[in-house]
Design a protein around this nucleic acid. Structure first.
Lengths: 212, 212
DNA sequence: TAAATTTAATAAACACTGTTTAGTAAATCC
DNA sequence: GGATTTACTAAACAGTGTTTATTAAATTTA
């Protein structure tokens, strides 16, 4: 019977319709103004309708957060063609930071807000999209170690460190904590910091001939 | 005339009464549940009364955020007695991270939420309390450089980097992004990361005899 | 001291928020 | 064609920050 098939298809279409509206409101108006009512109004449905397709706001925001990860992963993929793993690492760093600065509201949802993580806790799934991005970093770092650009280091320790560093720079910046450096070009400081870190983890190798 | 003096004193007492209540609600109930009504109820006044002493929620939260900085600065001061600047740097790092993990809601307000920064924008003051803490880090780093524990580096670049690193570790942790390392002892990874960073910035000096 | 004025506090309202419930109209099934 | 399921929504509930009009008390003035 084709009706049930059409119905499930329509149900899915409505979900993506809501999801896209949520994403748009999010990007245009920001986290604070992304209310259920605002999203409902955009698709010309009543607020209550959204609850027929999403359990609650957390679940909806969790899916928006997944969209964000799809976009970030997509941008990460652009660096796949870079042969040198250390150069690829630099590119990933720049991509990550630029993503955060360009899409602060989505970045907010992906790495700062509690909501998406609470949605995960209510299911038995893990933070798959986060894991995917982390794996991207991990494999690049492993390759850097294999090709002796970086001193051998426990990979979880190293990846958590690089990620935290990049997140620290990005999040303190988009949350306006760097205004105290008002006499400096902040973006220049940010990219300078990335280079400082890259220099530090690379220099270790250069200065240790026994690893070469 | 003693009346006006008493009045201004009472006005100040009421402000601190509200402020302390706000801080307590904040610590006990968290950011989300720290509503004007909840704060008002705790001091047994009507919500409207708070607006006679504070312009809006942002201004009140800004003062709570300042209390947080007083506490953090206090804890930083405990490391003043450490002679070796590099050991002092390690202590500051541990203090910072422990502060964030122990007081996640206050840390939230100090380094994550937008609200306190918006309160600053509306006045002509800067982020003085943030600057104080940063100066603490800066002077320690400068001393590290002077005593050749750390390779000479532009001080703003270096301090922004160390701070971002510590904030990245702390904030990703308290916002539950490290659950993907579920097979590991996360706190161990965190302190391990601090050691990794310390090792990296120190090693540069050791491996460069021309600086010693 | 009595009246006028200033001050302090609040109840109630406004415009929002997420979410639930009851009810309606249309589509589908028998 | 009548019964049933489905899709949707209006209205309500409990909460939010904030403003306004009003009241009662404290203070000043005459």
């Amino acid at each position: 019977m084709g009706i049930t098939e059409r119905k499930t298809r329509e149900k899915q279409e409505m979900r993506t319709k809501i999801l896209e509206a949520a994403k748009d409101v999010f990007i245009e108006e920001g986290y604070e103004k992304a209310s259920i009512r605002a999203i409902a109004e955009r698709i010309e449905y009543s607020p209550a309708t959204i609850y027929l397709y999403y359990k609650d706001k957390n679940e909806l925001f969790h899916e928006v957060h997944e969209l964000g990860f799809e976009k970030l992963t997509e941008e990460f993929r652009l660096s796949d063609s870079i042969e040198n793993p250390f150069e690829r690492l630099r590119a990933l760093g720049h991509t990550y930071m630029k993503f955060g600065i360009t899409n602060p509201e989505i970045y907010d949802l992906m790495f700062i807000q509690k909501a998406p993580m609470e949605a995960i806790k209510e299911t038995d799934e893990g933070w798959d999209c986060g894991l995917t991005c982390l794996t991207y970093l991990k494999t690049t770092l492993e390759e850097c170690i294999a090709k002796q650009y970086i001193q051998p280091t426990e990979i979880n320790l190293l990846s958590i460190s690089i990620w935290s560093y990049m997140h620290g720079l990005t999040s303190l910046h988009i949350r306006d904590r760097f205004h105290i450096f008002k006499d400096f070009d902040i973006e220049k400081l940010l990219y300078g910091s990335v280079e400082l870190m890259l220099g530090m983890i690379k220099q270790n190798t250069i200065s240790r001939p026994e690893n070469q």
